[in-house]
C-alpha cells in the first residue's frame, strides 16, 4: 500500500514548521527520515498519521485521505510505532500486543481467544514468544520495541510509521530492531522511520528523506543522495562518507568530524 504526501505545509501561528513537503513511499519501501532536532520530523509523522491537520496539502494512504477518517478505519491502513519508554502501567507483552486488535472490535468488546492466538503467532515470528506473559517494565528496550512492532502488525495496517525505532537501545538491540524493520519492508510493508543515525539510512533504507528547516533537502536512494556535502549541510558538522568491503559486500558508512 502506498502513502503519498503532497505539498504538506504546517504552521503554528507565524512559525512555519513544514513547507511544501511532497514524497511518496510504496509497498516494500523502507524510507528513512533524517534531519536535525526540531526540524519537523514529529510534525510530519503526526500529519501522516492524521493526528493533526496540515495548514495546506494532503496525505493519502492507498488513495484515501487520512485526515477526517474515523480512527478505527485509519488504524487499518496505517500504524504508529512510538519510541520505547518505560510505561506507567506494567502491562504484559501479550496485553500490549492485543491492544492492536481494538480497531476491529465493537466498543464494548475486548479481544478473544482467536486474537490471543494471532498475537502469539506474531510474537513467535518476531522471536519473542517466551515473553508473552512478562511485564513490559521488566524486559529490555529492544524487546519492548519488538512488542510495539507486534502491536502494529496485529492491526493489519500495511503502512508502518516508526518514530526513532532505535532510540534508547544498545548497540546489539539497534541492530536486531533494524534487521526486523528491513524484513518487514521485504515482506511488503511500507515502512517509514525517523533516525538520527545516517548509517542506518545508508545500511537499511532504500530511500531517504532529509529535512532541513521544514523543507526537503534531498529525497532519493541513500547511497546516491547522502553525500558528504548533504550530511554536512544537514547537521552543520563535517562528515566523511566512505565505502567498506566487509565479508565480500560493500557498505556505505558515514563518520562525523570536527571541520
Amino acid at each position: 500500500m502506498s502513502i503519498d504526501a503532497v505539498k504538506l505545509c504546517v504552521s503554528y501561528g507565524a512559525h512555519e514548521v513544514l513547507s511544501g513537503v511532497t514524497f511518496s513511499a510504496a509497498a516494500g519501501d523502507c524510507l528513512a527520515v533524517l534531519g536535525p532536532n526540531g526540524v519537523g520530523k514529529s510534525t510530519l509523522f503526526k500529519c501522516l498519521l492524521g493526528f493533526i491537520a496540515p495548514t495546506d496539502g494532503t496525505v493519502t494512504v492507498g488513495g484515501k485521505k487520512i485526515l477526517g477518517m474515523p480512527r478505527a478505519e485509519a488504524a487499518k491502513l496505517i500504524a504508529y510505532i512510538p519510541q520505547t519508554s518505560v510505561p506507567t502501567f506494567n502491562y504484559t507483552v501479550l496485553d500490549t500486543v492485543l491492544m492492536g486488535v481494538t480497531n476491529s472490535l465493537p466498543a464494548f468488546r475486548g479481544p478473544n481467544e482467536r486474537h490471543t492466538q494471532k498475537a502469539l503467532e506474531i510474537l513467535e515470528t518476531l522471536g519473542i514468544p517466551h515473553l508473552a506473559e512478562s511485564g513490559v517494565e521488566k524486559i529490555s528496550g529492544g524487546e519492548r520495541q519488538l512488542a510495539l512492532i507486534a502491536r502494529a502488525l496485529i492491526q493489519d495496517a500495511r503502512v508502518l510509521i516508526m518514530d526513532e525505532p532505535t532510540a534508547n537501545l544498545d548497540y546489539g538491540n539497534r541492530f536486531r530492531v533494524m534487521e526486523r524493520i528491513t524484513h518487514l519492508a521485504a515482506n511488503g510493508y511500507t515502512v517509514i522511520f525517523s533516525t538520527h543515525e545516517p548509517n542506518h539510512a545508508l545500511e537499511y533504507a532504500n530511500c531517504v528523506l532529509a529535512l532541513k528547516s521544514g523543507k526537503i533537502l534531498t529525497f532519493g536512494e541513500p547511497n546516491a543522495v547522502l553525500t558528504e556535502r548533504t550530511l554536512s549541510e544537514l547537521y552543520g558538522i563535517g562528515v566523511y562518507v566512505g565505502k567498506l568491503t566487509i565479508g565480500g559486500a560493500e557498505h556505505s558508512v558515514s563518520l562525523p568530524y570536527n571541520r
Binding site: K46, L49, F51, R71, A75, A79, P82, G100, T102, Q155
Partner: peptide, 8 residues
C-alpha cells in the same frame, strides 16, 4: 497519540 493510532 498511541490510542488514536490504535483506532480509538
Amino acid at each position: 497519540d498511541e490510542a488514536k493510532s490504535l483506532g480509538v
